[in-house]
Design a protein around this nucleic acid. Structure first.
Lengths: 229, 229
DNA sequence: GTGATGAATTTTGTATTCAAAATTCTTAAT
DNA sequence: ATTAAGAATTTTGAATACAAAATTCATCAC
């Protein structure tokens, strides 16, 4: 550290974002995970003080986290009334997938020229392995997890921060409320492999198109489903 | 009030969202408008206590509002460092328009079957009137305002809450940082009239396509622009 | 027994307070 | 004169405190 690279002093954005984690963020992540993994009964009320106590923090940072979750749609905050765990009906899930159908292909298009051959090969291997797995609870979890990581990775690769922040809540809600896949595994796997194939060729249009087909088929399956899973 | 329609009592979502405005929301709206109308120097730092004092509120609700604005991308919140007014460069504006190019056509598609002939006629009249206006500062404001209302109305008509919440921040950022239109007025007007024509026919595909052309041409114009307006 | 009225309790919304971290300013040394 | 070190100040992060609103509970009238 011989060069004390001076920070720009005032009225300028410091260079590095820094990740000085504060309590808000930790509580946010923690409550979000509880919600996504279904640890609260849908529709149930959250009492600030109780949850604060059970997390061992004060109400102040908890409120910040809850406000954020409410903004993202996982909670419903009704002023002077209370905070409730959102419950999505089928119509809302469909609305959610209409947005996904639009944004996921964009992610794939933008990601196509940025995927390295090595990463494409790795993705392909992972999904091919998935196809061989037995239908246990364990592999179900692995499947859902790989699915989430796959879609999120494409968004990262796309390198468009506004796409990422638009997709964040959408994917979270989808994860929280879609506890079973709407279609058989093997269909999902072959869809993903088609996307990966197009990505590995760096073909943006084909990648987007393959992704659009994938999501729109999930959407079709949803439209045929019964009200609640 | 002879029928005291009892609210569902516990562990259920009350029926109506209610709009019991709290300080957070009022401060949020107020600071957002200040930011959008360019009342803070881009990149400048916001000191919580100063702003709280100038608004006549305490830091607590202000912080909530600022957190929300940071999440939406209008502010940059760096923990233990400060809060700064975001400054978008051209690359970020382009990223923003890539997302718009994707979502606005969806809004138009979904809105098409829901637009009444009366509303379509009104929109058409408004935009035709715009075309005749002289190039003054006054009519510039009117133009920007009508543009914002037009796009937002389609999103409302689309009736997809997730589309709306994805578009909210995107449109706000676009409004905040796009202080001039990237293309000549008359082009924008004819684009919009084309969209309205398709909408009035209830043709979802054509509406979406017209909207996509509109946004993608703005995007093209942006790509040719110099770094800052 | 049913329903309404009002008191008691709970819970939220906001302000205030305090400690920890960062920045700025001052002073001293080379 | 320039740099470095340390003290003073500012500002943020988080807890606590308090008032206003809503809910619950108990009592009483019919």
């Amino acid at each position: 550290m011989t060069t004390p690279t001076r920070q720009p002093t005032s009225d300028t954005l410091p260079i590095r974002p820094i990740l000085h984690e504060n309590l808000d963020d930790k509580i946010y992540a923690s409550v979000r995970d509880m919600l996504v993994s279904g640890q609260f009964a849908p529709g149930s009320r959250i009492v600030q003080e109780d949850l604060a106590a059970s997390l061992g923090v004060s109400r102040t940072p908890l409120i910040n986290a809850l406000k954020r979750l409410a903004q993202e749609g996982l909670l419903e905050w009704i002023p002077r009334r209370g905070i409730f765990v959102r419950q999505l009906d089928l119509a809302e899930l469909i609305s959610l997938f209409e947005v996904r159908e639009c944004l996921e292909p964009l992610a794939a298009e933008l990601a196509a020229p940025r995927v390295t051959p090595a990463e494409a090969a790795e993705m392909q291997a992972q999904w091919q392995a998935m196809d061989a797995l037995p239908d246990t609870d364990e592999s179900h979890r692995a499947f859902v997890d790989l699915d989430r990581r796959f879609h999120w990775r494409l968004i990262e690769l796309a390198g468009n921060p506004y796409l990422a922040s638009a997709m964040g809540p959408v994917n979270m809600l989808a994860a929280a409320y879609l506890h079973g896949t709407p279609r058989p595994w093997s269909d999902t796997v072959s869809d993903h492999l088609a996307v990966i194939e197009a990505l590995s060729r760096g073909d943006a249009a084909a990648s987007g198109e393959a992704m659009r087909r994938h999501i729109s088929q999930s959407l079709e399956a949803l439209r045929l489903e019964s009200p609640v899973s």
